[in-house]
Nucleic acid binder design. Structure first.
Lengths: 216, 216
DNA sequence: TATATTTTGTACCAATTGGTAAATAAATAA
DNA sequence: TTATTTATTTACCAATTGGTACAAAATATA
């Protein structure tokens, strides 16, 4: 039996389980801590978040943060990645709706849900994470600008597909439409951060969709 | 003649001219310096602006700044006042257009002009001055939120007037319309800060106006 | 001229910023 | 048990933050 067990162990080690790590085990869950960091960055922005506040909220000391996530900038980037794969994962889902109009409706509605979710900060982290900042933070600022442009580009591609599929008129300017939707999204984020509630944001979505182009 | 001159002087002193100030004269023009400060706050935000950068850009030393404008927070407030009475003075003008639709069209178009003006930073200072921030800056953050809400309230009032004057249908929800326009405005500000150019922003205005309610 | 008044420049302050060295603690491997 | 490895704690670092004391300079008044 010992042999069998040993065999199992060695197989697990080299193939599946990373086995037990050598030294002292981590006393915190990386994902949980990263979620807490995300919440702070989300509500205060990159520059508005200090390492001192992070240590308090995360409940771990600075050397542990630096050992686990690198410096403040890489911690922000990892929190941002968690944001896009978590609270903002609905974007990918919305893109798969059958028509361009449904894509937009689903996207904006789910964005409102996220903006007004009481379990997370108001607004969109990618909008308010570093809209303006000092010179030292311009890398993060540019990163967030790139995120916004990527979303816009994704909309453009989806709308071109819709044009080919016929659910968007041939005369439609897909880049303009993408920028229009991005603008509504970003404007609603500012509104949410300033206190607008779910119902008010949904009314904006409805209003914004009235100008959506149709074939007739 | 001495008596006459003295009389003139004393009259001037107490009524019109502040006469020549007693001590060493200021070596800078307050309004020019305030404009420079405004530009820094506008592009970097409240927290992203350091007193060190201000001294460099304004060309005067810190004690002179503090003597003339108070601390960083009051300096920001004075720069903000100059912003509203300067670059953003077009709002009052737009409000006087004959119909609600023309008010909105004029407002958004002039906002685009301001956002993309090459002589000033991109975007709207009231949106990006402190969208998020650390706890120490929350007073400024709230101040800017109030500014945005005031604009929205002004639109609401103007639209109610339009309803009474008949150029806006009775079924129109003025508060919703005001929030919609504010959202477009704020979204375009984010776009401008992220690199959108004048033509792109004007296309957004056109698109946004398509959903404006009409009487027929 | 002397005096009062104001601004300027230098040099400084305490507090906070992001970040780290070093000793100790907790686990595995031999 | 002993050695090795990793994580935590404490205490610290240089640089920067917003803000100021103080003396010298520049003006008006007397």
């Amino acid at each position: 039996m010992n042999d069998v067990v040993k065999n199992e162990k060695s197989v697990k080690k080299s193939v599946k389980t990373p086995a037990k790590p050598r030294g002292r085990p981590l006393e915190f869950n990386q994902d949980e801590v990263l979620d807490k960091a995300l919440n702070v960055f989300w509500s205060r922005g990159y520059e508005g978040t200090s390492m001192a506040e992070l240590t308090q909220v995360l409940g771990i000391n600075k050397p542990s943060i630096y050992a686990a996530f690198g410096n403040k900038e890489t911690l922000f980037r990892k929190a941002l990645a968690r944001y896009t794969s978590g609270s903002v994962a609905f974007v990918g889902e919305a893109m798969q709706a059958p028509t361009a109009r449904q894509v937009v409706e689903k996207f904006l509605t789910l964005a409102v849900d996220s903006f007004s979710d009481k379990n997370t900060p108001d607004g969109c982290m990618i909008v308010q994470g570093a809209l303006t900042c000092g010179q030292n933070s311009s890398a993060i600022q540019q990163e967030l600008i790139a995120c916004r442009k990527n979303l816009e580009a994704a909309f453009n591609e989806r709308f071109e597909l819709a044009k080919n599929q016929g659910d968007l008129p041939q005369w439609a300017n897909t880049k303009q439409l993408a920028k229009y939707i991005a603008t509504i999204h970003q404007g609603m984020s500012v509104q949410a951060t300033s206190g607008a509630i779910r119902e008010e944001l949904l009314a904006i979505v409805e209003m914004a969709l009235k100008s959506w182009p149709t074939n007739d």
